[in-house]
Design a protein around this nucleic acid. Structure first.
Lengths: 342, 342
DNA sequence: TTTCAACACGAAAACGTTTTCGACCTACAA
DNA sequence: TTGTAGGTCGAAAACGTTTTCGTGTTGAAA
């Protein structure tokens, strides 16, 4: 077992000073050709690589981005990480991932931990509990310390920082409008409880679309789900009791569950019940029938978030730039869960 | 903007030495009750938190685990990360995630980067390209430097280290045996090219099961897929040309594609064609019909891998323990893609 | 011979900690 | 008065870098 070699060891071995070794390896003109070659050869032989922790301490830069997300077992968040990682890697950064498990406390702990020197900046999406409590002190604290933060998807207006989002309300509006254009009128909504920011916005889009077409909103056709793991019962009740002709669901899971439930109840999709979902993930693609859905390009969101963060990190003149909110475009991906043509 | 406060600043402000501040904060008995309280109050007021990078440098421990996986947009790997993160967090570790994108070069670069001080140990799963090249020098190098490595799922016998796997061959054998027990005989196999370790093992299990039941192996019923994104054509050809009664697929994607293809060709699943997949992920659960599959508990694998790594990291007497290979048990999850009862 | 520039290198500080050791002071016992 | 013990605290090293500045040597010009 040969441990990593340090400048000091090389210096001792070659009987020169640490400075000389360091300068030689960085091709400083102060050093004679002779010693430079000698040092470089030795360093190569012993496979010298500078210790990144020491560099981080000296430079006050870690070249590492902290990511805090509610869950990773969730295709959308996985794609965002993938998008972040790709850009980060290109620009010489690593990513360190923390999961909040939708818990406020874990989010706070993770942020405080990472903020103590481990990373240069954050990319994050709020946990449900944080959105419910509306307590963002941990985030403003970090920002106050001069550490840049980029929020994506689940954001809040209470914090000023760079953001990457989609226009959830508009996207939902367009999806529901598409149903209306196809002649559907009895449109159900499966959504989340209101404190989830994106759920609320998508609900708003649904309501707006109905109203703008003069369709009266029936509360019975709207179900708000708290616990995503046990949504089946509520969805079954919705489909069984309301005679809907179509459903708009604010995520993939609700959409596929609606389809499975409909089939179980003897309904054909899309003939008896059309379904549009949200987030173009694995489930929508591989469900039978495949699901018409609002694309929400996680890769692009991740790319953009990483870009924004890195640009801010590497901006010479700090602080001058205003915060930006980048809106990633969405579009409807037509598949089998809605009738063909229009 | 108030930057993070350091020991030095507190010392200066209180007109004591850095040592005194440090000792006061760690409740050293050397320090008088008086100054201790004074320092602690001041530190609390300014929200002092020790700089983790400085601690890492001093302690030669980062309390960080490096994870290198081929992809994150892949439910199984996401669950493993989740499992690792959970245990790591419990024991005060962070995780830093790098993606190899199935590329040998990226795997090497990422490992070398992280090995230079950023982490205490690795948890990894080999990229396809690495398995193809059979070049593991980057891994043995890291191990030689005294940095522990735990491999999971896609492992190799060429490297001695802790491993977490499932018995791929046995699990496949049992799955195929289940088909045979249900009276199926014309059993197709959709698998990967041989250099993917787990694919090869699962293929072996399939062959073993057939042979042990005296069923002759027909090469035409086996299709080996190189490019997972374009598997549909090969699968369609398999189903259309061979009159199979069932299929064993070595992953979720192949299984769901087989089902979709079968339905497209007018076959009913499971009546005309039974399907068993591998890896109990999102797709298997939400496919229609849902897919009978070999469970492969990523969370458990992640948990175990993290445990093994941390135990080795925190073992006092280093090196004494022998390397272990932990086998996570699997079982068949019965769903709709195989006939009920048996 | 003296002076000065150019060259080659080393010492030391700095990043933020922890920890060992030594030093100082006070009080008390001999 | 002297010696010693205990109680407080500070200096300094260490982790591994980079960088600034200083220093010594050499050779050539004056």
């Amino acid at each position: 077992m040969k441990r990593k070699v340090t400048l000091k060891q090389i210096a001792k071995e070659l009987d020169v000073s640490i400075s000389t070794v360091s300068k030689s390896l960085r091709d400083s003109p102060e050093i004679s050709e002779d010693t430079r070659q000698k040092v470089q050869a030795f360093a190569k032989l012993y496979n010298y690589k500078p210790n990144l922790i020491a560099l981080s301490l000296k430079n006050k830069k870690t070249k590492t981005i902290g990511i805090i997300i509610p869950e990773i077992v969730h295709h959308f968040f996985a794609t965002v990480i993938s998008g972040i990682e790709h850009i980060a890697n290109e620009r010489g950064y690593n990513v360190i991932v923390c999961l909040s498990d939708e818990s406020f406390d874990k989010e706070v702990i993770n942020m405080e931990m990472l903020a103590n020197g481990s990373i240069d900046g954050f990319i994050m999406s709020l946990s449900k509990e944080t959105q419910l409590k509306k307590d963002f002190h941990h985030i403003s604290e970090v920002i106050n310390q001069g550490m840049p933060v980029v929020m994506f998807d689940r954001v809040t207006n209470d914090i000023l920082c760079d953001k990457v989002i989609i226009d959830d309300s508009l996207a939902a509006y367009q999806a529901v409008q598409d149903l209306i254009n196809n002649g559907f009128e009895k449109i159900g909504l499966i959504t989340t409880v209101d404190y989830v920011s994106v759920g609320k916005l998508r609900t708003e889009g649904y309501l707006k679309a109905l109203k703008s077409s003069g369709i009266v909103v029936e509360e019975n056709r709207i179900v708000k789900i708290e616990d995503i793991d046990n949504c089946a019962d509520q969805i079954e009740k919705l489909i069984a009791t309301q005679s809907l002709d179509s459903i708009f669901a604010v995520n993939e899971l609700f959409a596929v569950t609606a389809i499975k439930t409909a089939k179980k109840l003897g309904l054909k999709v899309p003939e008896d019940l059309a379904v549009i979902g949200f987030t173009d993930g694995i489930i929508s693609t591989y469900s039978s029938p495949s699901i018409t859905t609002v694309s929400q390009n996680g890769i692009k969101m991740g790319n953009k978030a990483a870009q924004m963060l890195i640009e801010r990190l590497e901006a010479e003149d700090e602080e001058d730039e205003q915060y930006k909110t980048e809106v990633i475009e969405t579009h409807l991906v037509l598949r089998e869960s809605t009738p063909p043509l229009q």
